[in-house]
Design a binder for these strands. Structure first.
Lengths: 232, 232
DNA sequence: CGGGATATTGATTGATTTCAATGTGAGTGG
DNA sequence: CCACTCACATTGAAATCAATCAATATCCCG
């Protein structure tokens, strides 16, 4: 398999804008969301630009403000597995090691909030609650990874696509109209399929009246139950 | 796919044996290994017996003393994905939630050391170092999961089996002679393949003189480089 | 020396990939 | 406003890798 991914020129802008950030962990002094809200510098990343690369020293933790980010690993020959998409509110870069375990790229033009890992580490050593939150958030990422392994190892194409759609729908206001920030190639690399199989499977689901495809980036869930049936 | 897994009767024995446990985190008062060594009760679990089930309240953290444990998820129809094998020294059950995110079973007769999650949580809230260690260990599990997603999503059968063998060999004293604690079915469910494909692939690797198969549970790595070539 | 579980091997099928062509849509410049 | 282009997506036909179905073979363990 070959694929060439054009790389836009890097354009970073870091400023001191501050704004409210909500999160399930509250926004106190000793919560990650709080730290991001208080001390997080804003950073803009253009579509397809790398946020960090595998093996690079992990200098920051990141929170998505707007846009979407993919974290992934690649084989030498270019085969790529996307482990997760990070949407607004999500925190990523939690690998805890000194070095990133995988790469992160902007799926669309993004605004991120960044916080120095070193300062968070320093705080965490003194503050058990913060350290516990780092743990819990990482554990949550691990839980999702385990779920995704089940999908990649044991589900067929229809089940994979259905799972994906349900997961995306769950993150949407209405839970019906999905606005996809990512391309078919991204979806394919997330689901461990080819772009053609993703496309075909979406068509099948449309013919079955489970979904509607008004445009390639917009999907309506017509029959949640038929998707759930496939969610095994 | 159908599969019946006979379930041996549960036999637990908890005692107060204490012994030394080494680990990369040291064995002080404030390290997990230390806590296990000081306060960990021993527990014996027979082959194929469940240690804990998905959705069960997470009461303990576990460390393997001897034997091997598999953690996995299953679909309603029985399709199973093993996320990891835990060998002596490994700590598992770190999901951090109140409830287990997946199930754990003994691959072979096992001795485990268990520590109450609640007491560790309590300690962690006061001790940043311990909380940080919990984080780091979970992050390590997450890193491995990401690696495994790449295998499940993007590698072919030969690459999967080669990766598995290299990983097992790395955990062996000599790095040459592998003594497998798990069945072909376990390997298949770990690699997202069928038992037949695992078997065939091992035979292919043997014919290629990359490995030797003196018995089904014993494998010699003859040519590490040919396996590494497949490790992409 | 059975006997049941586990593993290997063979033949065939089938889901997904690969290769190839066509379609669609957004942005650009005339 | 319309052609043109380029990236992206869909659709079709053929090939392929792994799954399935089926038959031994081997290994424990009583």
């Amino acid at each position: 398999m070959e694929r060439v991914m054009e790389q836009a020129t890097l354009k970073l802008r870091v400023n001191d804008d501050r704004g409210p950030v909500e999160g399930i962990y509250g926004a106190g002094e000793h919560s990650l969301a709080g730290i991001f809200a208080m001390q997080g510098a804003l950073m803009r990343v253009e579509r397809n630009v790398e946020v960090y690369g595998e093996e690079e020293p992990a200098e920051y933790l990141y929170q998505v403000v707007s846009g979407a980010v993919r974290t992934y690993k690649v084989l030498q020959d270019g085969r790529r597995q996307i482990g997760a998409f990070h949407l607004p509110g999500d925190i990523f870069g939690l690998e805890a090691d000194e070095v990133h375990a995988f790469s992160a790229e902007a799926v669309s033009d993004c605004t991120l909030r960044i916080a120095r890992r070193a300062s968070i580490m320093a705080l965490a050593t003194r503050d058990g609650d913060l350290a516990t939150e780092l743990w819990q958030r990482t554990a949550e990422a691990f839980r999702r990874a385990q779920e995704h392994m089940l999908l990649l190892g044991r589900k067929n194409a229809e089940e994979r696509v259905a799972s994906f759609l349900l997961r995306m729908a769950a993150r949407t206001a209405t839970g019906q109209a999905i606005e996809l920030p990512m391309s078919r190639q991204d979806i394919a690399d997330y689901l461990g399929l080819t772009i053609e199989t993703v496309s075909r499977t979406l068509t099948i689901l449309e013919n079955r009246a489970a979904i509607e495809l008004p445009s390639s980036r917009r999907i309506f869930v017509r029959s949640r139950s038929s998707l759930q049936q496939l969610n095994a």
